[in-house]
């Protein structure tokens, strides 16, 4: 949990292009797109971490990415389910980080 994780130069540039473009576009796009760009960026980042990196075997992140990717486009057709996804993903992150914090504390 405490090792320094580094994304590849290629991945870094790709994510930066995505973030800068999103920031530029969101000046005029519907405000809900902002939530979408954030979770999309999050799953892109998870994808970089899972692809051949040290986090390749991280089941939690893999599952989270699958869950978010499979439901994120509901923004366009089913806003309620999409909002639920945002809540679920945040709750799952909190649960996971709490579990890891407890594990770290007991191992130190």
């Amino acid at each position: 949990m405490t090792e320094r994780m580094v994304v590849s130069e290629e991945d870094l540039y790709e994510i930066l292009a995505f973030l800068f473009s999103s920031a530029h576009l969101l000046v005029n796009e519907p405000h809900l797109y902002g939530t979408f760009r954030l979770i999309d960026a999050a799953t892109r980042l998870i994808g970089c971490a899972l692809e051949g990196g040290e986090l390749e075997d991280d089941k939690f992140l893999r599952q989270l990415k699958e869950d978010v990717d499979s439901r994120k486009l509901l923004l366009m057709t089913d806003e309620e389910t999409y909002f639920q996804l945002l809540e679920d993903a945040t709750r799952e992150m909190a649960k996971e980080m709490k579990t890891r914090a407890v594990a770290n504390k007991s191992s130190s």
């Binding site: 540039y13 790709e14 292009a17 995505f18 473009s21 999103s22 576009l25 760009r37 999309d40 486009l73």
Partner: peptide, 8 residues
Amino acid sequence: RKFAPGIF
């Protein structure tokens, strides 16, 4: 694609 956040 890298500069098109709307293209997945």
